[in-house]
């Protein structure tokens, strides 16, 4: 004990310095929000890393049960999806949209010809009238909207891609249901443009755009893309939104063709009271 006291008194200069320095640091950390948050954050960083390391080790022990869970989930999801890519020809799946009391039929097809570099792009599917495909049916891919069937022959059908100057798809912003129109202005097959969203709507980069379901061609809620950039151009009274498309049009292979069974009924009704187009 006496040695310790001797040691401290001999080096009191350093110990006093250290003590006062600790006091000063306490002042700094206690009174400055930035420094405090930095301290808390860095300690969180350290503890967080330790926890991550720990879970990195322990998660191997639960791999088996996680695999089982995933298998179960896969089976459940597989029984829910409207179309499976592995299924063979001629299969027709029905999908009841209970929210709107509307029934859609899905047929799967393969893209056998496709283009993305022209101003007006088309693609050809390996199924046609014999398989139940009719003009004006919607075409969707694993990641979202692809196009609309234009012409059908016996065994093939021609699809107007989303990347076409005549293509306009009724779309909405997922988070607030504001309605707009998706169209393609050329050049970049990964981007489309969304128009007619009024400027009072609050947008954010990364908001998801989905189909509105108003056109009777696509069901509601099919993904299209996410907002990449937006601006109100001078003289316009709506946003011009750049949308990054989910679908990579350059590598399409399997697609679904959507048939709206009530299309004629709705169209007929709308033509009757003059609201149709």
């Amino acid at each position: 004990m006496r040695n310790l006291i001797n040691f401290i008194t001999r080096h009191y200069f350093f110990f006093l310095f250290a003590l006062l320095q600790v006091v000063a640091m306490m002042f700094i950390v206690q009174n400055n929000t930035y420094h405090r948050s930095f301290f808390i954050n860095s300690s969180n960083f350290i503890t967080g890393n330790i926890y991550r390391m720990q879970s990195g080790i322990t998660q191997y022990f639960s791999l088996k049960s996680i695999n089982e869970q995933l298998m179960e989930e896969n089976t459940r999801l597989r029984s829910q999806i409207p179309g499976s890519y592995l299924s063979t020809d001629q299969n027709i799946f029905t999908f009841r949209d209970t929210l709107h009391q509307r029934q859609f039929l899905y047929l799967n097809a393969r893209v056998i010809n496709n283009s993305v570099r022209n101003r007006n792009n088309h693609m050809t599917l390996n199924k046609g009238r014999l398989h139940g495909i009719r003009p004006d049916m919607g075409v969707i891919g694993p990641n979202g909207v692809i196009g609309i069937v234009k012409d059908v022959s016996g065994n093939f059908s021609s699809v107007i891609s989303l990347l076409h100057s005549d293509m306009q798809i009724s779309a909405k912003i997922q988070k607030n249901n504001h309605l707009g129109t998706i169209l393609w202005q050329g050049f970049d097959h990964t981007k489309a443009t969304m128009l007619y969203i009024p400027p009072h709507v609050e947008l954010e980069k990364g908001d998801t755009i989905i189909t509105s379901g108003f056109s009777q061609i696509f069901p509601e809620g099919i993904a299209i893309g996410v907002i990449d950039e937006f601006e109100v151009r001078r003289g316009d009274n709506f946003y011009t939104i750049d949308v990054k498309l989910f679908t990579d049009f350059n590598k399409l292979e399997y697609v679904h063709v959507v048939q709206n069974i009530f299309l004629e009924e709705v169209d007929g009704l709308e033509t009757q009271n003059g609201s149709g187009n």
Partner: peptide, 26 residues
């Protein structure tokens, strides 16, 4: 050391930067 600490502290109190000048002067 004490003089330095308190000099810094006085500066800190008046310039609203608790502890920083005290620590640096120390």
């Amino acid at each position: 050391l004490l003089t330095a600490f308190f000099t810094g502290l006085v500066i800190d109190i008046f310039s609203d930067s608790p502890g920083m000048h005290a620590s640096a002067t120390l």
